[in-house]
Amino acid sequence: MATIDYHWQRFSSGQKLARFSVYLFFITGFLYSIRSVEVIPDFLYDAPEQMMDLLSRMWPIDYSFYPLSVHDAMIETLNIVAN
């Protein structure tokens, strides 16, 4: 009686190697980028404060700028879209 002595594989070892090398390329690139990218920590620690500053200045909305600069720009945008 013949025994079933093979093991089913979805990918050949060449395919596995190719896929692994793609993963390896991206992981290596990612780690290398993380190590070499220039991030200024002081700015990062300051981020919540800056965000609060931005939001507090955004509210209340200042409509007095609308006739000065927003209106013409908005009409021009619409004209560009229409043309």
Binding site: E38, I40, F43, Q50
Partner: peptide, 15 residues
């Protein structure tokens, strides 16, 4: 523009 305001100039804002 929002991230440049909150985390400052540089690559982190772009990321």
């Amino acid at each position: 523009i929002l991230f440049v305001k909150s985390v400052g100039f540089g690559a982190l804002a772009g990321i």
